[in-house]
Each structure stands twice: as structure tokens, then as C-alpha cells.
Amino acid sequence: MTAILDLDPFALDVLADPHPHDARLRDAGPVVYLPAHGIYAIARHAEVHAALRNWQGFQSGAGVGLANFRKEAPRRPLSVVVEADPPYHDAPRRVLSALLGPRAQRRLREGWTVQARELVDRVVSGGDGSVVEFDAVGALAEAFPLRVFPDALGIPDEGRENLLPFSDFLLNAFGPRNELVAAGAPRARALSDWVGEHSVREALADDGFGAQIWAAADRGEITHGQAPHVVRSLFAAGVNTTVHALAAALHALAAHPGQWRRLRADPGLVRVAFDEAVRWASPVQTFFRTTTGDVRVGDAVVPDGSKVMLFLGAANRDPRRWSDPDMFDVHRNPSGHVGFGFGIHQCVGQHIARLEAECLLGALLERVESMELAGPARRRLNNTLMAWDSVPVRAVLTR
């Protein structure tokens, strides 16, 4: 029998502090019905992991948000990568996987390392020579991805300030039409139009990822009709989630100064620390799937055509999977977390995000001996993301 829970996962107080509610969901059972929105919820790690793997039973093509596109017409263009199932999903995914793979990472590493050091030098130069305070979100977590990834994508400097609001609104729109969606609605059309105008071949630099996607269309790997939508997918996901993952890592390390000291003692743990931050904070909190038939989860059956909300953040703190899951620990092995998803829809750019984190955190380790929060951090509420709007940091510089 399916448990029923009186919980609105999109209530503002829940979005601001989801962890107590995540625990209620996990404790209620392997699958829970939420009458507030007429949806099912899965929050335990084993069941979330299984649902992400089972694309045949839990489809993405009916939308990864609350709206059920098996029962209503889409109000927006669907992502050809995130909201498509095989066979339609396969060709765009192959193109992006090749484009963002190890060869690209090797090519980008040297330049991104230099740019990260230059950015960190500018940020810490504002102190008195030994101590500096700055907002880790604006100064680092936003500034670095908004510089390096659009450069790699091949879009001009002008207009890059549209990237975060565009993807923030898109991820807000995966939820209900609440006040968060209403707040972004006045700019939504203009932002979407800007992205569309910069997804065409003529708007992209000849040597960037965008041009390479169009070249793949010329080779017949995807259609020319698909090409602008594949480019658009990088506008939507290539910056936003990386920004919030970096902000999560910087907040975690500033809130746990002892963990920063452990990381300085062993800088080789940078990538592990970043993944642990993604597990611990889960910037992407939830995604939806739709059942393609009656699907058994535990002892319950989720009916055909049901919207199922997968709580990635809750799964990443499931004590059935993790020891001391609420503790941030750079010495933990966080492999198996679902912060980047899992299965055929696992985040195709996750290794690029890890490279950005390695470059930025590595540069910060070189210049900062210790750091801590300099004041209260402030959340940025979003129907899908767990994000920070501001993380004030006080850093003691190396001598």
C-alpha cells in the first residue's frame, strides 16, 4: 500500500530547508503519494537510483517537470537531450558526449587553470594583505563559469548576463505556476528569444562547442533541425548547475573550516571534495519522470501515466546508503551519489563541471590558508534547485 503524505514540495519553506521534509519522505516508505499535486514521490537512494536507471518504465519524454505531456500539450520546447527517450535521445547524446569528453577536457584544462588563478588573484587582492572578505557566489561561483564555459561554447560577451536568469526560469518552470515562476515570467520570452538567436550557426564562434554541434549536423550525426536545440541545451545546463554546484562547494568548505584545512593538506582531494559537496548539498534537488505502465516500487504499484518526483537531494542523504549522511566530509567516498543523475540521462557535462571545480578550487587553495563564513548565507529559491544567492566569506591568505 502506498503511503500518503500531506506535503507540498514546492512550498517556499520546504524549498528553503528541504532536509527535514526529505527525512519524512524517506521514512514514509519507498514510494509516497503527495495529494497536494497528485504526484508520487521517491526519496530513498536505492529506489531513486533504480528509477533513474529504468528509463523504459520511467520516461523522460513526457517532461521532467510537474506537467504531464502525455495528458497536455507542452507549453515550451522540450529538451532534445533531457526530455527525450531512446531512440530520439541517442544521437544528440552521442554528439554531446563526444564533444564534452576527455579530449575537450585536456584542451581546456591549461587555459582554465590560468583563468582561475587570474580570477582568484583579483578577488583576494582587495584585502589588507592577509585577510580578505568577498561573496563567494558573485565573485567566484558565478564569475568563473560565466567566463570560461560561454567562451568554450562560442557565444559573444554581450548578453551573457542572460544565461543564469534563462536557466533559473526554465528550472523554476519544472514546478507549479507559483510566485517563483510569476516573478520570472515578464522576462521569460525575451530570454528565450536571446538564447534562440544565439543557437544558430551564424551567431557562434567557429572554434566553439556550438560550431562543432553544427558540424556534427553537416556530417549527418544529428539533423540540422536538431542542431539549434542541442546548442540550446548547453545554454540551459552548461552554466547554471555548475554555478550552483560551485557555490555549494564553497559554502560547504567555508561552513566547515576544518574540511578546508584537510583539503589544503591533501589538494589531490579536490575532485572528491567537489563530489561530496554535490552529494551533501545536491544543487539539483528533484526531477520528474512519468510511468509508462504500472510500475512496482517496493510493495506498492505506481499506476501508468503517473508523474513521479525523484528527490535526488533526499537520496543523497539517505542513511540507508550513507554513514553520517548530514556530515560534509572531504575524506568520504561520495561515489554513487545521484547529484548528477544516473543512467542514460546522467548529466552529460558533469566532467566539465568537475574540471571547472578543480581549476577554481585549486587556484583558491594556492592563495587561501583558511576561510570561514563572514555572515549569514542567503538562499536563492527555485522549484528545482537548491541554490545560494550570497555566501559571504572571510579568507586568511597564504604568506
Rank of each mutant, 00 (worst) to 15 (best):
M1V: 15
I4K: 12
L5R: 02
L7I: 08
F10E: 04
P18L: 05
P18M: 06
P20C: 10
A23V: 14
G29I: 00
V32P: 01
F58K: 09
A67F: 13
R70L: 15
K71E: 11
P74I: 14
A84P: 10
P86Y: 07
H89W: 02
D90G: 10
R103P: 08
L108K: 01
W112V: 05
A116K: 01
L119Y: 06
V124R: 09
D128G: 12
V132I: 08
D135V: 10
A139W: 04
A139G: 07
L140I: 10
L140A: 02
E142Y: 02
A143Y: 07
F144T: 09
F166C: 03
P186G: 06
V195M: 03
V200T: 10
F209Q: 05
A211D: 06
W214S: 02
T223F: 05
H224K: 01
A227E: 10
P228T: 08
V230D: 00
A237W: 03
A252Y: 00
L253K: 11
T290C: 10
L310Y: 08
N316R: 00
H331L: 15
R332W: 11
F340H: 02
H345V: 13
H351M: 11
E369N: 05
R379Y: 03
T384P: 15
W388V: 05
S390L: 07
V393C: 03
V396M: 11
